[in-house]
Amino acid sequence: MAKSIDVSDLDIYYGDFLAVQGVNMTIKARSVTAFIGPSGCGKSTVLRSLNRMHEVIPGARVEGKIMVDGQSLYDPSIDPVAVRRQIGMVFQRPNPFPTMSIYDNVLAGNRLNSKRMKKAEQDAIVEKSLRGANLWNEVKDRLNKPGMGLSGGQQQRLCIARAIAVEPQVLLMDEPCSALDPISTSAIEDLIHELKSEFTIVIVTHNMQQAARVSDDTGFFNLKAAGQPGQLVEMNATKKMFSNPDNEATEAYISGRFG
């Protein structure tokens, strides 16, 4: 199922504003790729261009090429809706649908695909996804209660369950732990470890230890200079990035000597 992603010469605009310039990288299938870098350098922007969520912002557009397993993502014949069904996304702030129960939240994506599903099949998907998101034991007795009634960390895991319920090929996560306590965070990190056997995962994080713990490859983004667009400074295996990076700026950022 999992797919690899090739990005070449990617420029990303908000209207006339060039936010990110000249990104080239390869994201391997069945691995975890982390994006790190200072605030405002374009990590979320790049992430959102990978499932065509960038263009839902009025005036936003992308130039360059993104290939997902050899298929061009921005080809005019490709329907962005279909792309998003295969490339799931988890946001920084948990966003379960407030009027839906836990059960319905998990199935929200499956119902969009508008297949008629038998009750047993639905139950199976809900259980599998909630187990996958390490949430099953906490909510199995209250599946029909609103998703908003959960704690922040549980809500975030519910969103992960919702994203994996449709069995996407790629899972994008934008600072999924930034609003969570250390225990929920470690639950989600464990989860990422388990998920990478099935999915290709890209995660944005401000937490260096987290990037070091969960990822196989790391990309460091930075602004070229104040007022300039963001760029990908270096992308390497995480081990190398954190021990012996090629670029001085990467080393400075990772070791906390960032000016």
Partner: peptide, 20 residues
């Protein structure tokens, strides 16, 4: 946030309106 939750699941505009 809710609109994007629906869109990121692959909702069409009308489905997004129904969900969010």
């Amino acid at each position: 946030l809710h609109e994007e939750a629906a869109l990121a699941l692959g909702a069409t505009r009308w489905e997004m309106i129904r969900y969010a």
